[in-house]
């Protein structure tokens, strides 16, 4: 099975402010791996570093044995990374269908793109009804569908999902977590960044807790439930 993403001691900074100081994670093929941590712990920075949007000064990022660290973001996507960014980041002045087509930018096979489009519309019938609507005029839940559908259009081997629950109602959060599990069962490895601990641990196979740019705890969901580092990372209890 493919879709094995690892980072090895990566270090990254915004200007002189170091945001990642030697983060190593191992997202196993076919698994849901979660990254937990409080606001500002470095979760989103880690995602941006993996995608190449945040340059890393040291360390190595690998996908299925291939080194990604020196590639530009679009080349990393071409190697099989997909992303549902924090805040969904749909293209507001594009229609739903155009958003989805941007997701398949790297594929030049028209029939293939058409097939994937139909598959996304099957998963989200709502998007099929609204394919000509500007994505910026849609509700948060609908934009979440656009963002997830767009990421699936490239048929990634590893899907990075950053805070899917942000700004959604509890019912929609439950729905998106169920959907993430479905996507995972279809054979896509998932790296899930979340603040919503209980629901994340319920679907994740393995998790890492990040605090101040380093991994402070890791383990299976059961192990993390009872880890004292977990509470510290979230509530600052010492």
């Amino acid at each position: 099975m493919s879709g094995h993403l690892t980072t090895d001691q990566i270090i990254a900074a915004y200007g002189s402010a170091r945001v990642l100081s030697g983060v190593s994670i191992n997202a196993k093929p076919g698994a849901i791996t979660s990254i937990l941590g409080a606001n500002g712990a470095g979760k989103t920075s880690l995602i941006r570093a993996i995608l190449g949007l945040l340059p890393t000064s040291k360390g190595r990022i690998e996908l299925d044995g291939e080194i990604l660290s020196d590639l530009s973001p679009h080349a990393r996507v071409a190697r099989g990374l997909g992303c549902v960014p924090e805040g969904r980041k749909v293209f507001p002045k594009m229609t739903v269908e155009e958003n989805l087509r941007v997701g398949a930018y790297l594929s030049n096979d028209k029939d293939l793109v058409e097939g994937r489009l139909q598959k996304v519309y099957q998963t989200f019938p709502r998007l099929n009804e609204r394919k000509q609507q500007f994505a910026g005029t849609m509700s948060g839940g609908e934009q979440a569908m656009v963002s997830i559908g767009r990421a699936l259009m490239s048929e990634p081997r590893v899907l990075l999902i950053d805070e899917p629950s942000l700004g959604l109602s509890p019912a929609l959060v439950r729905e998106s977590f169920a959907l993430i599990r479905d996507i995972n069962r279809s054979g896509v490895s998932i790296l899930l960044v979340e603040q919503n601990v209980q629901q994340t641990l319920a679907i994740a196979d393995y998790g890492y807790v990040i605090s101040q740019g380093t991994v402070v705890a890791q383990g299976t969901s059961e192990e993390l439930q009872n880890d004292p580092e977990m509470k510290k990372a979230y509530f600052g209890i010492r």
């Binding site: 949007l53 530009s72 679009h74 960014p85 980041k89 293209f91 594009m94 930018y105 790297l106 490239s154």
Partner: peptide
């Protein structure tokens, strides 16, 4: 056109365009 789609994507959100596989430069 596909180039036009890429131009609009970059115009609306450069970072997100890149993680959709669009060669920014």
């Amino acid at each position: 056109t596909k180039l036009g789609l890429a131009i609009r994507a970059v115009a609306q959100d450069g970072d997100t365009a890149q993680i959709m596989g669009i060669p920014f430069r």
